[in-house]
Write a protein that binds this DNA or RNA. Structure first.
Lengths: 165, 165
DNA sequence: TATAGTAGTTGCATAATACAATCACTCTTG
DNA sequence: CAAGAGTGATTGTATTATGCAACTACTATA
């Protein structure tokens, strides 16, 4: 549409600076939600269907997601592009700030805590795994569980903890 | 107001996820704009006065900025809190993404390019300097120009380049 | 006392967003 | 092939956000 300025920070804000786009990306990345219905019903913040439809169109237009070929009424699969995968550092930085400076529920904070503890190499590992899942890159062999498995394990452990008290 | 969820990413998006808040912070951080009028007239994107007033109130409420004591009609000075200084990695990540994946004007991209080239230690250096400027921390001696001077020099060099052609 | 400047506020028009209900299409099942 | 469920939206309506201009209240300077 309208670039308000040539500033790279503004360029990012124009695409991602709203109350839903980054949360949709979060669910695609960390929840591996690839279909409209999965994103709609899986959203803990409760996104409306028209807002989700609008954001998916915008994210595709911005080159962050691609939409698999599907006719109207058919299931369309959304995948991250490399541009979309590269938003992970932004989401990581936001999550870290939220973790440090805002309250929140322990089980949802546990993943961010793990990412923070693991450091920058873990972000690279996550991005590599996203290239496997979304771009069809050849899988890299891990010794032990992959990065998303470790995140899920951290979440599961925190949920367990919640139920104990 | 209303936390839509306990997710730390959502917590950050609720405070910073709009089209102006991060640009105001950018101008406070990189442009050292500390007063209402400086932020209003210095904004290259052209923020409206009521929007700026609203965002400043919200950023203060969120604990990101503090407002110096001033009556109505008096000049009020805004300063970053430690929470506000810690938004720098978010702004850096956004700028880096914008630099890599969106077009923009060369002179405005030059600062981000320098930050990217200098690496993570430079961000720490910038945050230390912000603590000096905004929190009254004792200045750290540099051998050579400080981080903001280097950014301004990069911008000046790029502007020069633009005028040559 | 006039003038300019600072930090907003108010009013109003337009645009964006949220929520609920509905639609068009496909796929499966009997 | 008709019924029913599932998918990916679209539509309608209400609320909220944004943009623009004018105005207020105060201060500092001349």
């Amino acid at each position: 549409m309208e670039p308000r300025s040539g500033c790279p920070i503004n360029a990012a804000v124009e695409v991602l600076g709203d109350r839903w786009s980054l949360l949709v990306l979060r669910d695609v990345i960390f929840g591996d939600r690839r279909y409209f219905r999965a994103l709609l019903t899986g959203s803990i913040e409760g996104i409306a269907s028209n807002i989700l439809a609008d954001r998916l169109v915008r994210l595709v237009e911005a080159g962050i997601l691609t939409r698999g070929t599907a006719m109207r009424g058919q299931r369309a699969r959304y995948s991250l592009t490399e541009t979309g995968i590269q938003t992970l550092p932004i989401i990581y930085a936001l999550g870290n700030w939220g973790l440090a400076w805002r309250p929140g529920s322990d089980e949802l904070r546990s993943r961010q805590q793990l990412m923070r503890d693991e450091g920058p190499a873990f972000i690279e590992e996550l991005m590599d795994e996203l290239r496997v899942r979304h771009l069809g890159a050849p899988p890299k062999p891990h010794d032990g569980p992959g990065p998303f498995e470790r995140l899920d394990a951290a979440y599961a452990a925190a949920s367990e903890q919640e139920h104990v008290d």
